[in-house]
Simulated assay, not measured.
Amino acid sequence: MRQFTAAIVIAFMSAGGAQAFEDPRALLDAIYQPYASGARHDGLEQFYSTRLKALYAANLQRQSADPAGVPVDPNAPDLLSFDPFIEGQNSLLLDLAIGQPVVQGERALATVTFHNFDHTSLLGVALVREADGWKVDDIASMGSDENWLLSWLLQYDPFGLN
């Protein structure tokens, strides 16, 4: 009976909510660990702050109707369908380097560099401590190819579609 109960508890914990990270570096390590082995995350929202989740929700809502209020095709591709942690959809990360986060109170900032296929990336990851641990609050791409700020992409329509 004890083994059965333990199995249920383990299954519940693995299928349950997001893990709490008491250290910003532990959060970044957890985010990038699957990519280093060629795997993907099931859901990135577990790593996002409350503010970033709200920006994603508002962006999704804006994409459901055009400026005149006409519903958009539900099968239309998501404008922001890329994974911001790898700047793309697929990953073959090489030379991954996660900088030591600089912590100031309830906020932290760290850099992440890597090569994804033939693309070199330099990301600035802003983190915030919430009640359930450290979360990603924003991501900025500062590489030589494309520069973007995730919160800006979510809040405004860079493609002029809405």
Rank of each mutant, 00 (worst) to 15 (best):
A68V: 07
T111N: 07
A39L: 13
E22Q: 05
L55C: 06
A54H: 13
S37D: 15
S141I: 03
F82N: 07
A54I: 03
N90C: 02
Q46W: 06
F117Q: 01
K135P: 06
F4K: 09
V72G: 13
A57D: 12
F85V: 09
Y56W: 05
Q33K: 14
D145A: 01
Q155G: 13
A58R: 12
K135R: 15
N59Q: 15
S64E: 14
D138E: 13
G133E: 00
K135N: 07
L55S: 09
Q19N: 02
Y156Q: 14
D29N: 14
A7D: 11
A54S: 14
A140F: 01
D95V: 04
N162Y: 14
Q19R: 14
F4Q: 06
A54Y: 07
L96E: 06
A65K: 15
T50V: 12
Y48C: 03
E146S: 11
T50A: 12
G88E: 04
L161S: 15
L154C: 07
T120R: 11
V102E: 14
D42S: 06
W152D: 14
F21E: 00
L122P: 02
I98L: 12
S81R: 00
D157G: 07
H115F: 10
F21L: 06
I139T: 09
F114C: 02
G160V: 00
L60I: 11
G99V: 06
I86C: 03
D42V: 02
W148K: 03
A131P: 02
L28Q: 03
A6C: 10
P77W: 00
D157N: 07
Q61L: 12
G88L: 00
F159L: 15
A65E: 11
E22F: 08
P71G: 09
G17K: 05
P158H: 12
E45V: 05
G38S: 13
S151G: 10
V9I: 10
F82D: 05
Q61V: 01
P74R: 11
R25H: 08
A39P: 09
A57P: 01
T113G: 10
F47D: 08
L149I: 15
D23S: 11
A36F: 04
D138R: 01
V136Y: 04
S37E: 15
D137V: 05
Y32C: 11
T111Q: 00
A110W: 03
A140S: 13
T111V: 01
